[in-house]
């Protein structure tokens, strides 16, 4: 099955699934992995089935859970499985599938020398965020029996690009569909004059069909991302100016995409309420959760047990 077909199957499944997806995002080093691990741990302890998936190429979860992790989920406590996704592998898998489909269809690809182009495609801008999307699809597809899938995301830039991917793709696809329709309408006139039939060009055009199916896929994804009941975005930050500035940027960019930030986690909170007031002013309507500064390193499940979440997890159901 091609990646496109898999994506379509997944979206049908995804629509009916009640599973909640949480993205932890923020500047590098603010404690996204620790916060996501704590949330995942406490949710599992409360009886939920949780998958914690790191899609950050610089994985940290294996350090936090003090065990070896890979792209197969490992159950660390009852109800909590943890995995670290290899994004490079997703890019490679995707390119191989496309190349295979391409070779099956094209007769002249050797003459075009396009096979050489495929070797360099893995460095193309945009493929990494698409790999994140495929990894997300796969995680939800495989583990739809869980109550929560929590993603520990890469630092801001890639996450924002990934979240913007459906709407950016839709912009392009809507223009392409208009363009294609124009070509097909003209072709239709020619067919009408020559063969006396109308409408067959539009019906038989595979490119238009594929563009339309892509529009459906990205529209569904975009709808899913803006659905704040089932998809939550949590911004993690520290009480410093750089972190605040980047969080404000995330806020604006996410708002531009019609998505909402569900919570802001103020990690390494020292008790200074001035910054909290600034945050409440800047991020009006979004609750700020305070995670106190921890002097000790968080390594191992026991350390997570010792930490207090100060948050009623039932509220994630809202």
């Amino acid at each position: 099955m091609t990646h496109l077909a898999k994506l379509q199957v997944y979206l049908v499944k995804y629509k009916g699934v009640k599973l909640k997806v949480i993205f932890f995002t923020g500047k590098g080093g603010v404690g996204k992995s620790t916060s996501s691990a704590l949330f995942a741990y406490k949710l599992a302890k409360s009886g939920k089935k949780v998958l914690l998936n790191s899609i950050d190429p610089a994985h940290n979860l294996h350090d936090i859970f003090a065990c070896k992790l890979d792209s197969i989920p490992k159950e660390v406590i009852t109800g909590l499985s943890v995995m670290e996704t290899n994004l490079d592998l997703w890019v490679k898998k995707y390119l191989m599938a496309t190349e295979k489909e391409f070779k099956e269809v094209y007769k002249y690809q050797e003459a075009f020398n396009l096979h050489k182009y495929f070797k360099t495609l893995k460095y193309s801008p945009g493929l990494e965020e698409y790999a994140v999307l495929l990894a997300l699809q796969d995680a939800i597809d495989r583990y739809s029996d869980r109550d929560y899938v929590i993603f520990d995301t890469p630092p801001t830039a890639l996450t924002l690009k990934f979240l913007a991917l459906p709407s950016v793709s839709l912009l392009w696809l809507r223009e392409l569909v208009k363009f294609r329709q124009m070509i097909l309408n003209k072709k239709d006139i020619v067919t009408k004059i020559k063969e006396g039939k109308r409408g067959i060009e539009v019906e038989k055009d595979p490119v238009l069909k594929r563009i339309e199916s892509l529009i459906k896929i990205y529209q569904n994804l975009s709808d899913r991302f803006v659905d704040s009941k089932n998809t939550k975005i949590v911004v993690v930050m520290n009480p410093d100016k750089l972190s605040l500035s980047e969080s404000k940027d995330i806020f604006t960019r996410v708002k531009d995409l019609d998505m909402t930030i569900s919570y802001v986690i103020l990690n390494k909170f020292t008790g200074d309420e001035t910054i909290c007031k600034t945050l409440e002013k800047e991020f009006k309507g979004t609750e700020v959760l305070r995670f106190p500064k921890n002097e000790n390193e968080i390594v191992g499940v026991d350390c997570l047990e010792g930490l207090d979440l100060t948050f009623d997890l039932k509220r994630l159901e809202d």
Partner: peptide
């Protein structure tokens, strides 16, 4: 975006 190109390429 490259993924759109690749999906229509074949």
């Amino acid at each position: 975006p490259v993924h759109i190109t690749l999906q229509l390429l074949p």
